[in-house]
Simulated assay, not measured.
Amino acid sequence: MKKLINDPKNVVIEAVAGFEAAHGDIVRVSHDPIFIARSDAPVHGKVGIVSGGGSGHEPLHGGFVGYGMLDAAVPGAVFTSPTPDPILAATQVVDGGAGVLHLVKNYTGDVLNFETAADLASAEGIEVRAVIINDDVAVKDSLYTAGRRGVAGTVLVEKITGAAAERGDDLAAVVAVAEKVNSRVRTMGVALTPCVVPHAGEPSFVLADDEIEIGIGIHGEPGRERIKLEPADAIVDRLLAPILDDLPFVAGDAVLLFVNGMGGTPQVELYIVFRRAAEVLAEKGITVTRSLVGNYTTSLEMAGTSISVLKLDEELTSLWDAPVQTAALRWGR
């Protein structure tokens, strides 16, 4: 294992300290319990939005804390859910009197711990709602989930929901936007290589040099099938087909196309993937009106990609375009 770390036990602590040093103009950090909050939290009269989960998926979630997106993010150990205590503390810090929304990826530990934190916050008089993100079409159940996994589509839910909260929507309206995005986004991923969790010191799964895993999860969970390596266009076709069939997406739809890197995939390859995905959508009469390309929901150093397609309407497009200022997404401000 070759990693730029000191002690595997301190990876998250030291990474969050570095994040604080780099982005102190946007965020402030609590170290005990550990969470990242926007520097001006709580914003009075605004719905607070909290997300989080195991570390190793950066910039998700801490990289999306700031104006127009998340009010706080709670990092757990690598690939491990945060416990209820820091989730509760983050919820308390961002409560501006309008309630708090938890955006939770559908992994069993995350769901249970956010539920516990929400119950504790409710006992203190904080109104808390939760939306469970489950955009992955690859498998119904996995090692970590009951039902579909929450993967890269989480970024789109966080951005658009954050914009709704920033414009002053009340809690019920913000929840409705989050549910709307979640219901209209679908994702499928592929792994070319495994990743190495620091405290484990060995690959989380094994792929032969000529093998890839279709439908992989962001923790290295098994996907739909393991096949021989194919050209990029053939892989994209394999990923897009179940995405488009699932909603389904149809001719005349306007969509946001999001090509995400899993951490070890260079940008040049991601644009090759985007090119083919855009071609396929155009052939089907589906218009790409918004796009995002880059490493936003990663799996440590895993090589691979995921494709997310979000069906847009006027409201969602406007909220996507709304100003955002975070470490990982910035525009319009």
Rank of each mutant, 00 (worst) to 15 (best):
K228D: 13
L171F: 09
G304R: 12
S291R: 10
M69H: 03
G99Y: 09
D169I: 02
D7I: 02
A278M: 13
L319P: 12
D71H: 15
Y107Q: 04
I286D: 10
G63P: 03
H31V: 08
Q267I: 09
G264Q: 07
L316N: 04
H102N: 10
T193Y: 05
E58T: 12
V309N: 09
V185H: 09
G52A: 05
V288C: 11
I5T: 04
M1S: 12
I133T: 09
S183A: 11
A146G: 14
V11D: 00
P198V: 00
A176R: 07
I36C: 07
A15P: 03
T297K: 09
A327S: 15
V50F: 03
W331K: 10
D110Y: 02
A98F: 04
P266F: 08
P266Y: 14
L239S: 06
N113K: 01
S81C: 02
S204A: 13
G45V: 03
I34Q: 14
D136C: 10
S142R: 05
G99T: 10
A90K: 00
A22Y: 01
A17K: 15
E115L: 06
T305D: 08
D245N: 09
R129K: 15
L171I: 10
D95C: 07
V324D: 05
A327K: 01
G125K: 05
I34S: 09
E314G: 09
K2W: 08
L70R: 01
A200R: 08
D237H: 11
D136R: 09
